[in-house]
Design a protein around this nucleic acid. Structure first.
Lengths: 201, 201
DNA sequence: CGAAACATGGACCCCTGCGTCCATTTTACA
DNA sequence: TGTAAAATGGACGCAGGGGTCCATGTTTCG
C-alpha cells in the first residue's frame, strides 16, 4: 500500500520552515520560493506539496513560531523576590526582541496589509500573551502586599515598554547587534529596580 | 530664456511626495509608481524627472518627513512643572506613534535590508534625536534637584518606552486605531506620575 | 513669437517571481 | 518485488511593475 495522502514527510516540512525562516530573515518577504527550496535541499514543487502557496507557507511559519518564541516569557519563577523575578523577565524579553528569530515580527509587519488576521494572531499570541502573564504575576505581588498598583495591565505595559523600548525599534530597523550579556543584565536590573521604586507600597 | 535646469516645479515635487506617502501607507513598498503618479495628478515620467528612481523617491520621502514628524517632541516647555512637562511629552509621543504618518517607519523597516543607511538616518533623526531632547530636559531637572537620576539616557529610554510600548507594536502591525484623546491623556499622565515616583529625589 | 525646458500618455522592453505541468526517478510499504 | 505516492528538475505561462522612449502638448521667458 502506498503512503496515505497527508502522510507527507514531516521532517521535510520542518526543513522547509527552517529554510524559510532563514531566507526571509535575510531577504524579507521578497525572498523567492526557489531559494527557500534550494536551502531546504528540496525541490520547488515539494514546497508546493507541503504548503499550498507562499502565503500559506509564511502563515504557517509565523504562526508556528510565535508562541515558542515567547514561551520563555511565560515561565515565571514564583519563588524569587519580585525584583529578581522582574529582572529575569526583563532579561528574557530583551533576548527575545533582539534574537534573530524576531525578524519574523518584521515579516509579519510587511504582510500585515495582505494578512491582517495573521498580524492579529501574532499580536495576541506574542506580545499580548506575554504581558498578560506578567500582569498575573504582578497581581499576585499586589495581593501579597509587596506592590501597590492601581492599573495592573497598564503597569505591565509600562514595564515591558521600559525594557524593550529602543531596542525593539533598532532590531526592526536592522541596526545594532544584540546586546552583550552584561548590557542586557544591566538594563534588566535597572528596569526592575526603577519599577519597584515606582510601585512600592 | 527657458527655465533653468533644476528649477523644476516644486509644488509638483510636493504633490508627488504627498501621494507617495498615502499610497505607500496603504499598499506598502510594493505600491506601483504609476499609482503614485496618478494620485499626484502627474505622469509617470514626471515622477522620474523629479526623483531618479523609486528608491530615491522613498529615500527622499522618508528622510524629509522624519524630522518634521518628531519635531513637536523637541519643543519642550521648560516652564511647566516636571510632571506636567513629561505628560505633555508623552502625549505628543503617543500621537506621533499612532499617526498615519508613522507608516513611514514601517516602510523604512521594509527597506532596511536594501537601504541600511536610510534606516540609520531615520533612527538618528527620529527616535534617537527626540530621546536626546528628553534627556536634556531630565538633566535640567536633576540639576535643579527635582529628580534623582543616575543614568539619564537610560531613564529617558525607560520613559519613552513606557509611553509607547504596546502601541507602537500595534501601530506597526496595522492593528488598533489611534487612541481617543482621553485614553492618550490617561496613559500620558499615568506614565508621568509613575516616572516621577520612581525618580523622586 | 520662438526656443528651450518640462509634462503628458501610451507603447515598449525586461526582469523577477508565483504557480503549474510533466516526464522521470526515488521512496515506502504490502 | 511491484505499485502507488511523493520528489525531482526543468520548462513554461503569466502577471506585475521598474524604467525608457518618443511624439505631442504646454509652460515660461527673453
Amino acid at each position: 500500500m502506498p503512503r496515505l495522502a497527508g502522510q507527507i514527510d514531516l521532517a521535510k516540512s520542518e526543513a522547509i520552515l527552517d529554510a524559510a525562516s532563514e531566507v526571509l530573515a535575510e531577504r524579507g518577504l521578497a525572498a523567492p520560493i526557489e531559494e527557500i527550496a534550494r536551502r531546504a535541499g528540496v525541490s520547488k514543487q515539494t514546497v508546493y506539496n507541503h504548503f499550498g502557496s507562499k502565503t500559506e507557507l509564511v502563515r504557517e511559519l509565523v504562526a508556528r513560531r510565535v508562541s515558542s518564541m515567547t514561551a520563555p516569557l511565560r515561565e515565571q519563577d514564583a519563588e524569587a523576590h519580585p525584583e529578581e523575578a522582574l529582572a529575569a523577565y526583563a532579561l528574557t524579553l530583551i533576548r527575545v526582541v533582539t534574537a534573530r528569530t524576531y525578524s519574523l515580527m518584521r515579516i509579519t509587519m510587511q504582510s500585515a496589509a495582505e494578512m491582517p488576521d495573521l498580524a492579529r494572531e501574532v499580536f495576541e499570541n506574542g506580545p499580548k500573551a506575554s504581558r498578560a502573564q506578567l500582569a498575573r504575576f504582578l497581581e499576585i505581588e499586589v495581593k501579597a502586599g509587596r506592590l501597590a498598583i492601581d492599573d495592573i495591565p497598564q503597569a505591565a505595559d509600562f514595564f515591558a515598554g521600559m525594557v524593550v523600548s529602543h531596542r525593539q525599534t533598532q532590531a526592526l530597523l536592522g541596526l545594532a547587534d544584540p546586546p552583550t550579556d552584561e548590557e542586557a543584565e544591566r538594563t534588566a536590573k535597572a528596569a526592575a529596580r526603577v519599577f519597584m521604586r515606582a510601585y512600592a507600597p
